[in-house]
Simulated assay, not measured.
Amino acid sequence: MALKLSLKPEEKLVINGAVIANGDKRTTLVVQNKASILREKDIMQEQEVTTPARHVYFPIMLMYMDEKNYSQYYDAFVLRMTEFMGAIGAPEVLNMCVQISQDVMARNYYKALMNCKKLIAYEAEVMNGSQ
């Protein structure tokens, strides 16, 4: 099944490690085969890894973009997820962590990343005192 991407002007994305930048007009791309694709908004730079949930997200993103070095990133993921789960008491958040871990083990990295964004949002709420 093909994946249809609509890119905003100047939007960037990464496809199988190649950074692609859109021009000055809206563009639609159709990806016909399996590829590792991340939009600019889903790419985290190393200097942005500043919280425990972001420390969970980053190695998943690296596994997704660089699967040949999977074991190196997986070890970092396991360490960070274990630390995160040890500090969390909310059952719904722990369930989310388990789901993310299952997705990583099944190599469903994109799904794990999207769920990990929920962890980042939860963490932001807690840090802002909204919880």
Rank of each mutant, 00 (worst) to 15 (best):
T27F: 00
M63D: 12
V93H: 08
G129A: 11
N95G: 15
Y57E: 05
D42C: 03
A21M: 11
R26T: 09
L94T: 11
V19D: 06
K118F: 00
K25L: 05
E40P: 09
E46Y: 08
Q102C: 05
A124L: 11
Y70E: 15
L62D: 12
V93C: 08
F77I: 02
A53V: 03
N128I: 01
M44N: 08
I15A: 05
M63I: 11
Q45H: 08
T28P: 06
L94Y: 02
I88W: 00
R54Q: 13
I100T: 10
F84M: 14
Y109G: 09
K118E: 15
L62H: 09
A112N: 05
Y57L: 04
V98C: 05
L62G: 03
K117R: 08
G89L: 00
Y57M: 06
M96D: 06
R107L: 03
E46Q: 11
N69H: 13
A121K: 11
E83Q: 12
I120D: 03
V19H: 06
Q102M: 12
R107F: 01
Y73S: 10
S130E: 15
N22G: 04
L7W: 09
T28Y: 00
V104M: 13
L94M: 04
K118D: 10
D42I: 01
V56H: 10
M96S: 07
E10M: 02
K117L: 05
D66E: 10
N95Q: 14
G129T: 06
F58I: 09
Y57T: 10
E125K: 11
L119I: 13
N115M: 06
Y70N: 15
C97G: 07
V56Q: 07
D42A: 14
M105F: 04
E11H: 05
N95D: 15
M114I: 05
K41I: 00
P91Q: 14
Q32S: 15
T82F: 01
M105K: 15
Y57W: 07
V104A: 15
L29C: 11
I20T: 09
D24R: 11
K12F: 00
Y57Q: 07
Q72L: 05
A90K: 07
D66N: 12
V93Q: 07
N22I: 01
V126R: 10
Q102W: 01
E48G: 09
L5P: 14
V126K: 09
L7I: 10
V56F: 04
Y70R: 15
M65P: 14
N33C: 01
P91L: 09
N115P: 02
M1I: 03
Y109H: 05
L79A: 14
Q131I: 00
Q102D: 14
L113W: 02
Y74S: 02
M85W: 00
G86L: 03
M61T: 08
F58V: 11
N33F: 00
V14Y: 01
N16G: 06
R26W: 08
V104D: 14
N69W: 00
I43T: 12
K118M: 05
M105T: 10
T28V: 15
L38H: 07
L38S: 13
A35C: 11
